[in-house]
């Protein structure tokens, strides 16, 4: 079945390496070569030291749940999936991503733990775009 949820329209200027990585099943993150800190979402300037020397590297794809919620109301393709769990993920390399969490029971939020370890996976949404999701390990 065709992917029926919102598919990002990647901007070609700043974020293309992220989407190229996702297509290849890799989490690519931007890192500043001046202060050596990674950041997300991708920027053309380091938000920590304002250097414009940014490189991309393959991250571990590991992280932890910072916080989460169970969505009981949604629109479009997501309406078919309620209830589902959204979460903010603390990346091992630093900074944070939003996601729909996999490997959890949305009917039992008390069993989902802040701080639980998660790993990234990618779903092919179109010929050009794969979307990252995180799964509790």
């Amino acid at each position: 079945m065709a992917y029926n949820k919102p598919i990002p329209d990647p901007d070609p200027y700043t974020t293309q390496p992220f989407w190229d990585g996702a297509k290849a099943g890799k989490l690519m993150l931007p890192r500043c070569t001046n202060c050596n800190r990674a950041h997300f979402y991708p920027r053309m300037i380091c938000p920590h030291c304002y250097s414009r020397q940014i490189e991309w590297f393959e991250a571990s794809g590991e992280g932890w749940i910072h916080t989460f919620a169970v969505q009981h109301r949604a629109f479009g393709g997501w309406a078919d999936d309620v209830p589902f769990v959204t979460a903010y993920i603390d990346l091992k390399e630093g900074d944070r991503m939003f996601t729909v969490l996999r490997g959890v029971d949305a009917a039992k939020p008390e069993t989902i733990k802040v701080g639980a370890s998660v790993k990234i996976e990618f779903e092919e949404a179109s010929e050009t775009v794969s979307i990252p999701f995180w799964r509790v390990v």
Binding site: P6, T15, A74, G77, Y88, F98
Partner: peptide, 30 residues
């Protein structure tokens, strides 16, 4: 579509303010 929220939040089905603010309550409880 090239705003960060469009690329990195909208794909995940959050439906407006309540779907975001709930995450703050979970963290407050934690």
């Amino acid at each position: 579509p090239w705003q960060p929220a469009s690329m990195f939040a909208d794909p995940y089905g959050a439906a407006g303010a309540p779907s975001n603010y709930s995450h703050a309550m979970t963290r407050h409880m934690h």
